[in-house]
């Protein structure tokens, strides 16, 4: 082992981070917008990946995504518009909600866990739709963010927001990667494979799941807050509806759970497929989206990351 912390994933992520910083200044506006959305959705998928590693799938993470987005957007309603503050609030409230609901959800597995999440997310959706003050189904617009006093204008807003998002996403992703290598992170496997054994080793499987659940809530809230600022608008159908949860699961399947970097590649591929499908086949874009999911499941059951893993495997020496 070279180092306890630096490995190929950390190096790869760091290179991608630096490259994207420079690319930010040359990107076409629509590319940057797709990039921003990919980072936001990828962050949510990262949370789902962490849950998935312990065998849990959530069909309701639009709950935390929407909660984070609306919390950030509501801050601008009362006059706060600093991006750091908005992201902090969006992430924190989603994390607190995940912590509280976690006490209930950590007792469920499989389909019950998936659908209980869905149920909670639809409660949030219902509340938003019924609340006139939050614009009901139309939502409301979000003020252009400032960055610690710096108030960019025009294209500079998105350029700065992209850098801002990139930096946070980088930190979160490296953190998630290192976390998965810790004992606590590694216990995902143990919980997925055999909870009885985990209990008889003296550790609570439910506590492990709760930690993961809070993490997934935090990053989903983060993704929601970023999305609210990127689009400049929040509305229930693109923030809190069950279809949004479905997109996150879609991205996670597309990416595979082999590596934290995969979720961002998956999110980008998802955005590209959707954008182009909508552009060239406005009547059939959902058909194309569904078709690509089917193709992934049939030909790459372990997701896009299995392509990378396949490239690397032949060079890997058998472990000593």
């Amino acid at each position: 082992m070279r180092s306890k912390y630096i490995d190929n994933t950390v190096i790869g992520l760091s290179i991608a981070f630096v490259v994207l910083i420079f690319a930010d200044f040359f990107m076409a506006e629509w590319v940057r917008f797709i990039g921003l959305q990919s980072l936001a959705r990828g962050a949510v998928a990262l949370g789902l990946l962490i849950l998935w590693r312990s065998g849990l799938v959530s069909f309701g993470h639009a709950l935390y995504f929407g909660f984070g987005a609306y919390a950030a957007a509501m801050m601008t309603l009362i006059g706060y518009r600093d991006a750091f503050l908005l992201v902090f609030v969006g992430t924190a409230v989603a994390g607190i909600l995940a912590f509280l609901l976690g006490f209930l959800l950590r007792r469920y597995r499989g389909i019950f866990f998936a659908l209980l999440n869905l149920a909670f997310s639809m409660i949030l959706y219902g509340v938003i739709v019924k609340t006139e003050a939050l614009g009901s189904t139309d939502g409301f617009s979000v003020l252009t963010p400032t960055f610690l006093g710096y108030a960019p204008k025009g294209e500079a807003v998105q350029t700065t927001l992209f850098l801002f998002t990139l930096a946070f996403t980088y930190i979160i992703t490296i953190g998630a990667h290192l976390y998965l290598k810790t004992t606590l992170g590694g216990m995902s496997m143990a919980v997925r494979e055999n909870e009885i054994r985990v209990e008889y080793l003296g550790y609570s499987a439910e506590r492990i799941i709760h930690v993961k659940y809070v993490f997934s809530g935090l990053v989903a809230g983060f993704g929601g807050a970023i999305m609210a600022m990127a689009i400049g608008q929040v509305d229930p159908d693109s923030m809190a509806n069950w279809t949004v949860s479905g997109e996150f699961v879609f991205i996670t399947i597309l990416s595979g759970i082999g590596n934290v970097a995969a979720t961002f590649i998956g999110a980008l591929v998802f955005e590209l497929i959707r954008t182009y499908a909508f552009e060239y086949a406005p009547q059939f874009w959902q058909f194309i989206l569904g078709g690509s999911l089917l193709a992934i499941i049939m030909f790459l059951p372990e997701g896009i990351w299995s392509l990378v893993a396949r490239l690397r495997r032949p060079q890997k020496a058998p472990s000593p």
Partner: peptide, 10 residues
């Protein structure tokens, strides 16, 4: 906090 140390060490 030891749970946050790497799972693997020599």
């Amino acid at each position: 906090l030891g749970l946050l140390a790497p799972l693997y060490n020599d």
